[in-house]
Nucleic acid binder design. Structure first.
Length: 457
RNA sequence: GUGGAUGUAGCUCAGCUGGAUAGAGCGCAGGAUUGUGGUUCCUGAUGUCGAGGGUUCGAACCCCUUCAUCCACCCCA
């Protein structure tokens, strides 16, 4: 027997699950639309070359590859030795940003000079599944292509934060840093560029394992004691908000004056300042000099969004000015933020924010064995024409069973057109929330039912 | 990829140091009420005890192997 479970890390969504996903997604979508981000979609598969070399070494290994087909596969298999990387010509997209950049390169002349778009689509990673981590999951990206302005960063970050607030998750925290700041710090500490990657990974853990842990880990990775000391002295103070963040950034700009464009620090200060102006509490905006982020394509400011009391992040992003250039050969500045819907839903579930979200049906029409379904079907059609969702039970079972079924389906009104009603040319409407019933003449039934449903809102 | 734990009904779990027909709650089905759901009451069905092997008179329980899931680390959304 083959297993009937979906593949590891992938899920089936039944109606209840989907009603909740769609509820949350529609809120996010509406917030993104309110900023005038426009929706786009791209194929789930990309050429393997499009995906490779964009995410860093670890990321590249997590791309799901799709085997060549037919003669091309035979050719690849007939080579000796067989090279694994020549067996695939396509891959499932690993994120939404790289395909977006391909699209921007492809349609550069058709797209607006400043292109604001969003994508709510699944991505695939051949990761090991864990709590809140899946191999197939939906990301909600907002991006601004074509400007270096920090107002673009403010736009995408504030849109993501507004979406979280609209979902009832107002206790988010946005941590901000800049890749160039990290680079300057490692250079100032005398760390060779080829080791800066592993250094950043260790630094990222500062809040988890503390300065001593980072010191040990850096030592293990072959960083000299003097460099470690220097780095930690620059970073040991951890995150900062508000005026403290401003001061800290100013201080860093001075300390690193030889290696850091002063603009970078003032931009970060300004981003924090302007984000506060969009309504994000300044206590939720943190400068985190240890924030690194794994994806290798970021070139400037980077972000991570997390919620109180839950491990991991619900979103992240940054500026990736060189990524479009990898397809186009010409630099096109861009930045974006992504929310992970799976984690958002997990936290909403934990907090009971989805308890009331269930599938519903406006009107459910019962089925009687003794009479023709014709009048019921006419009424159902009339209601549907007026925008009402109507379901008709197909089997003439006992009314008790039909009512129980209707309730399970989330029906708000059940229509009864049995022999008693038929004789009078009438129909009975039962309001499921109260149990109250009214009997209506068929001619005016649709009007009344529409009003009844409107009155329940 | 590293470490730890757990696999018993559709779900959540109980099942003593190995003992005969493997249990509960919820859910499901039927009935009390052959035209009335959500409450109540009655009745019922359901399990290769994750899989394979071993020890034993006897295994859900002990041993080995394997698979799956979960938790932590890593990484991320």
């Amino acid at each position: 027997m083959v297993s009937i479970k979906p593949p590891a890390g992938m899920r089936d969504f039944l109606p209840l699950d989907l009603s909740r996903r769609e509820y949350a997604l529609s809120i996010i979508r509406n917030v993104y639309l309110s900023h005038h981000f426009e929706p786009i979609e791209t194929p789930v598969l990309e050429r393997i070359e499009t995906l490779q070399g964009k995410y860093g070494e670890e990321g590249d290994q997590l791309i799901y590859q799709v085997l060549k087909r037919g003669q091309k596969l035979e050719e690849a298999l007939s080579q000796a030795p067989i090279l694994p990387h020549q067996l695939a010509d396509l891959g499932l997209r690993y994120d939404l940003t790289v395909p977006l950049c391909r699209v921007v390169a492809q349609y550069q002349h058709e797209l607006p000079s400043i292109f604001k778009c969003f994508q709510i689509r699944p991505v695939w990673r051949a990761d090991r599944p864990a709590r809140g981590r899946f191999r197939e999951f939906v990301q909600c990206d907002v991006d601004v292509i074509g400007t270096r302005s920090i107002l673009a960063e403010v736009d995408v970050v504030s849109a993501a934060c507004e979406a979280l607030a609209a979902l009832g998750l107002a206790d988010f925290q946005v941590r901000i840093n800049d890749r160039r700041l990290l680079t300057a710090i490692t250079l100032a500490a005398g760390i060779p560029p080829q080791k800066s990657g592993t250094t950043l990974v260790a630094l990222d853990k500062l809040d988890k394992i503390g300065p001593d842990g980072v010191e040990r880990e850096l030592g293990e990775r072959g960083i000299g004691p003097a460099s470690i000391k220097l780095i930690l002295s620059l970073l040991a103070d951890g995150c900062a908000t508000g005026d403290e963040a401003r001061l800290r950034l100013g201080q860093m700009a001075q300390d690193l004056a030889e290696r850091l464009e002063p603009q970078i620090a003032t931009d970060l200060q300004e981003i924090l300042h302007l984000l506060a102006a969009t309504g994000i509490p300044s206590t939720s905006l943190l400068f985190d000099p240890t924030l690194a982020r794994g994806l290798s394509y970021y070139t400037g400011p980077i972000y991570e969004i997390s919620l109180q009391g839950s491990a991991g992040s619900v979103g992240g992003g940054g500026r990736y000015d060189e990524l479009v250039g990898m397809f186009l050969g010409r630099t096109v500045p861009a930045c974006g933020v992504s929310l992970g819907i799976e984690r958002v839903l997990m936290i909403m579930e934990e907090r009971g924010l989805l308890a009331g979200v269930t599938p519903t049906c406006d009107v459910f029409v019962a089925c009687f064995p003794e009479v023709s379904a014709e009048p019921s079907l006419r009424l159902a059609a009339e209601l549907r024409a007026r925008g009402v969702v109507v379901d008709c039970y197909p089997e003439p079972t006992r009314l008790k069973k039909q009512l129980a079924f209707a309730q399970k389906m989330g029906a708000r009104v059940v229509l009864l057109a049995g022999p008693d009603e038929m004789r009078q040319g009438q129909v009975t409407a039962r309001q499921m929330s109260t149990g109250r019933q009214i009997t209506l003449d068929s001619s005016e039934a649709a009007d009344h039912i529409v009003k009844l449903l409107a009155g329940q809102e």
